[in-house]
Design a protein around this nucleic acid. Sequence first.
DNA 1: CAACGTCATGGGAGCGATCCCACGAGGTAT
DNA 2: ATACCTCGTGGGATCGCTCCCATGACGTTG
Lengths: 362, 362
Amino acid sequence: MSQLTIEDIARIAGVSRSTVSRVLNGQPNVRPSVRDRVQEVINSYGYAPQAAARQLVMRKTRLIGLILPDNAHHLFGNPIFAEIARGVSQVCAQRGYTPMLFIGRQDMDEATFFSLLRGRHFDGVVLISSDRQDRSAAMLREAGMPYVRVGHDPEDDQDLQYVDVDNVAAARVAVEHLIALGHRRIAMLKGLAKDVCTHARLEGYRQALAAAGLPFDEALVGDGDWTPASGYAWTRRFLDLPEPPTALFSSNDMMVAGVVRAVQERGLKVPDDLAIVGFDDLLQTTMIFPELTTIRQPCVEMGTRAAELLLDQLEHNRRERAQIILPTSLIIRESCGYRRRVAASVEVKAAAPTAGDLQQPS
Amino acid sequence: MSQLTIEDIARIAGVSRSTVSRVLNGQPNVRPSVRDRVQEVINSYGYAPQAAARQLVMRKTRLIGLILPDNAHHLFGNPIFAEIARGVSQVCAQRGYTPMLFIGRQDMDEATFFSLLRGRHFDGVVLISSDRQDRSAAMLREAGMPYVRVGHDPEDDQDLQYVDVDNVAAARVAVEHLIALGHRRIAMLKGLAKDVCTHARLEGYRQALAAAGLPFDEALVGDGDWTPASGYAWTRRFLDLPEPPTALFSSNDMMVAGVVRAVQERGLKVPDDLAIVGFDDLLQTTMIFPELTTIRQPCVEMGTRAAELLLDQLEHNRRERAQIILPTSLIIRESCGYRRRVAASVEVKAAAPTAGDLQQPS
DNA sequence: CAACGTCATGGGAGCGATCCCACGAGGTAT
DNA sequence: ATACCTCGTGGGATCGCTCCCATGACGTTG
């Protein structure tokens, strides 16, 4: 309660401020017996140095900010962010930093956010965003706050350091897999247009169709918004088409929940009537349906790599460009119908029946 | 980049530190023309005071910590936390505070966590936890950090201020609803034993059975862990019983995902073969099944109330006991079979067919 | 034994804000 | 005209740390 200061501890231990400070910071040149005595006083009084005073002189907080897409809903709703955060957290803890997640940016105006950044509460920031309209990156730059981004925009690349996956290649592999299973009419569920990866995944879809000589049909492309509700609505439309698709590629796993509901509502079955491949590999969804074939993103690793880049930047002042593209993989389960056509003993995580290597290297 | 200080701004504007400080803090006794000039300099240089220096003298950070149950998985996986956080955020923003979410406490030892608290990075904390073993509350008290808890433990109530719902009453209403619909064998899916609300919800189940003169059958109580996987496993067991249940009450909505899968796998239907009532009212799940009848917790309001208590405590030094129990409500949809038995025009959110008022007042 | 390092320790300066008080200008009441 | 208040402004002290430098004890070397 009382909030002791370093001076109090020094007096109690019968030494000077400086000596207590040396003990606190693990510096050398303290007699072992003195060190022990001071440490004991610190422990018994539960003393910890006041962060603000330390920060003022050190110019470091050892706090790392984590910023997610504006909408908190999105954010908690989609477990991939939790995975990325876990990666960030692991590296931070290991290297003596504490990660803190910004919440409620939607309740905050830009000026407030900017002041928060300039206030130097954080040494650096991991920004998770593939949103083209998101002003966060610009504000971080303007505020002179070091940051590493997870996700990026190839068309407007002001981000010095980022970690991402090759969304085009990943989507292409997903769709090629469906083509290899014999499907000719393959629907595609897009995410929100503001997110860069939405366009990349659509491009992958196009490329796969083109490579197989299949026509691109606008009617088979649904304008989703990442939510199950949009998956539901679009699937109903697809199934109402005169010539409905026999397969569907969804830009994320969450929308698949709605897709499956729509299919079942018609008395149809997955994968027999509609084969599905998703994107993200959320653990949650594996429980719900015929298990989902999907593209796995290495979320935890995206987090660790981003944190490592950031901390290297902070500690060794590494400011060179670093743009890391991590490999994704196609996880074959039941929703694509593969197991029904191929021997059951097939190694699930191994190569797809299509192109050789599913690990897209950077 | 350069990181100007208040002194620099003062020099540029041709005034003293004190005047700039007054402008910064909106204090009176500054000539309007001077105020404007200073403000303009501040804006044009993008100056914001360094938080650490300000904190040192003010002894306030205007940062609020948000602590969730240890496991980040849990946390992001379950959207009720996002809702609570949204409530907290709204109130904080309105009153000039910034909420920050702790992540990675599982990667941090207790001593580190304690130092973090004593470092006074935060003015106060909203602790979301119904975990009996969770040491967070004890550590907060030990560190002298003001906090308000969302969720509580009636058996060990050291928490001065908390916000919660009446879990016993809420569960009782859910089960009474199933009983009123004619069910005699009603299964119950528990949550993790470490969470206090698990026991409360079981107690509500017992009370409802007892009140209706129905026997309590151990075989119908499943030891869930809040995840869909446990709902799946236990439902399979229930359905294998010689005399399987015709209805099920789940302690949360997430487990219901697994329940439904198990039911469908057997070629059975919800609610015809198994009527279901859940708990939480997650938006997500409404997409997946026959729409879920469930107990709604006023999550956002729990957040706002907790934040209000905390900020009142900080600003007006209100330290009296404040224990707020918010009302829950039974949301009747399709999964309980109510609509099939009663006229379709029934007001859905109105009273259950059983006890009059579904809003359990505090 | 003098000169010189090395080690353990203490004290002063300073980080960048806020806050209190002093001070002068100007207005109002006596 | 004097006393007194209010308002606008500036400068010193201060918050609790870390860092730099001075100092003295002790050991090693020529």
